[in-house]
Design a protein around this nucleic acid. Sequence first.
DNA 1: CCGCATCCACCGTGATACTG
DNA 2: CAGTATCACGGTGGATGCGG
Lengths: 121, 121
Amino acid sequence: MPHAAVQEICPLNEVLDRVSGKWAIGVLTLCGAEGVVRFTEFERGIPDISRRMLTLTLRNLERDGLLTRTVHPTVPPKVKYRLTEAARELTETLSLLTDWAKRHQAYVHAARAEYDAASAR
Amino acid sequence: MPHAAVQEICPLNEVLDRVSGKWAIGVLTLCGAEGVVRFTEFERGIPDISRRMLTLTLRNLERDGLLTRTVHPTVPPKVKYRLTEAARELTETLSLLTDWAKRHQAYVHAARAEYDAASAR
DNA sequence: CCGCATCCACCGTGATACTG
DNA sequence: CAGTATCACGGTGGATGCGG
């Protein structure tokens, strides 16, 4: 007999699955800031991301309709990515989460430190 | 040379790490709806969660200062959990994410179906 | 009633090398 | 330039059983 409120969270968990993972946020953020972004620009803009992880992240976001991918069949090839309208709304909402994170960052760190200290005793 | 906007996302990723995982959202949501919640009430309210996963989730949230845990040394023992103020603000923000998820749920599913269909060809 | 310990399967992640 | 292919690893999540 699950609680009613818990039924509501299913769509939320779907979003979080999409956006969690180490790199998705970085890609969305960079693309939101720059507009149109090329593959190599992602590589330069996001520290420590590997080619493989960048590709996988881009594919997943494209699959979910958050990113469009356009190939220019030139030599050398160019591939451009941009956010969809849905993704832009998403990043705006995520920025509110960022606000929360900044306001409570110190609090969370302190709580964690205290908890760990208490466990050690 | 990382992009400036990408530097901003660090706190956001911290939040997401905390809230991602299969169960954290369910715990926060249920606790937000009920106020004070006992261990067994979580077990009944959240479908398919195991004792172990519930325990781990509660510990992590407590560690981060999002949940308080109070033990009543009675027989049988009672343990009550409630959200901290920080957690309440967090769940409010998350509800905005839920709004986004509901509004775009159909869109995302359609995009995904089409992408998969296109890949199969 | 509440929680911890152990063991195990899986998948996301990364390193490396190759291609149109 | 923009990927793909393959291999290997570690951490997270799940099943089960014991304990205060």
